[in-house]
Amino acid sequence: MDLVDQPLHTILEGTGHRSPDLGGSTASILVALIGLSLIRMAVDVSLGNDGDSVAATDELEQALATLDRQSVALTDLADADQGAFQAYLAALKRRRPPQASEGGRDAAVAIEQAGSRDDAVSSAETVATRMPVQAAHVIVQALELVVATGDRIKSTVVSDIFGGAALLHGALTGVLLAVDINLKSGQPQSHAALAADRDHLSWRGKDAFAEIKMRAEAASYQL
């Protein structure tokens, strides 16, 4: 079953204990989905404003279609991220250092097996890092969409698009923190491209949210 099809209490129970079924990045992606829904509602309500040009209407309709695609992408990434998290935990459990009592051929076999398990953990770490990076791409694009369409939103729902953007910004922070902790382990050279991508996404997200905050303050809202 997809995560979004599960009751909220099941998701909360799977997150808030010592051995969670959901990692921090998965939880952050689910938060991003809620933020996207708020933004979508604000855009949908704003369609058909009196006096809107055809171009303005087309822009909002295109924004709705983009938000729907982003929602599908994040839904799929939430499931993939959970799977990557579980695979990483399983790889950690399988990893066992050679015992001091093992000698000769047994020790060599144990060392070889340990190396194979270390490779499995490293591979699982890499996959577990890619998922939140991919989610960050979608979240940043959604924040940039808010910047592009924010001036088309009705005043009655503008607080919702700002609230949705704030949730997206928090979700972006969460997924990037998950990337950071994964990058602290494993082989640095294998993570160089991911680290560079992460830094670029962080910069884009901060830039977009700074613009959204400025617009919110101009409308007498504080983010």
Rank of each mutant, 00 (worst) to 15 (best):
I34R: 10
A192R: 05
Y88Q: 15
L145Q: 04
S28H: 01
D58Y: 11
L201R: 01
I11P: 04
A87R: 00
L143D: 07
G163V: 01
T57Y: 05
A210C: 07
V158C: 08
Y221L: 06
Q187L: 10
G164Q: 01
E144Q: 15
P132W: 02
P188T: 00
A110I: 09
K184L: 14
L167R: 06
S155F: 12
L201K: 01
T173S: 14
R96V: 13
H137P: 04
H169G: 10
A216D: 07
A107L: 15
T26V: 09
A91S: 11
R96K: 06
T126K: 04
L64D: 14
A80R: 07
T126P: 02
S202H: 14
A80M: 09
E112G: 13
D44K: 04
K154D: 15
L194P: 02
S155T: 13
S46T: 05
S19I: 10
S202I: 04
S123R: 05
I11R: 03
V109H: 15
E125R: 00
R198M: 10
V175Q: 03
D21V: 12
S220F: 11
Q222N: 13
Q134G: 07
T149W: 03
E61N: 09
D52C: 03
R130M: 08
A142F: 01
G48F: 04
E102N: 06
D52T: 01
V157R: 00
R117S: 12
D106S: 14
E125K: 01
G24A: 10
R204D: 12
Q141Y: 10
T156K: 03
S123G: 14
R69E: 14
A166K: 07
K206I: 05
R204G: 08
A124F: 01
L183S: 09
A110H: 04
L38P: 01
G103N: 13
T126V: 08
D118C: 04
